[in-house]
Amino acid sequence: MDLKQPIVWVHEESLGSTNPALEDYPEAPALFVFDQDWIDSKHISRKRLGFLYECCLDLPVTIRKGNVVAEVLAFANRYGADGVISSGAVEPRLQRHGAAINRDCPLWILDGEPFVELPRAPRLGRFSRYWREAEPVVWESYKASG
């Protein structure tokens, strides 16, 4: 079942026009929240905040600051949204935010194009192990594009 009236939550790992949530739901109101707790606890400098802000200016997003979960839910509420669309995040902090949002409002995560798609999860631990498996697959698309 598709969401009828979702909002989009844009986070720090996907501040580009290729954000799959923005691409797939161009009409949905979108929000970015400066995470005040993160900024305070990690002493994030103004340079970093300025960079994030400039990235946001290129996107069709409303910008807020504060508690990310509360802001996203309030934004969803304001638009009478039946769900939140976002993009996959690696950072545990963002995953926790997503889980908390999902407790109150359905959250759909969309994934963008991966760097390399491997048939099975590669062995990590050391780069060389991973790269032995990944490198040939990455270069397949060079042959394809050439």
């Binding site: 400066f34 994030i44 103004r46 400039e54 200016l57």
Partner: peptide, 17 residues
């Protein structure tokens, strides 16, 4: 908006362009 954050803006610009 962020009075607690230190320093100035970077000369490296953000954004798609």
């Amino acid at each position: 908006e962020f009075p607690g954050a230190s320093g100035a803006i970077s000369p490296i610009r953000g954004g798609r362009q």
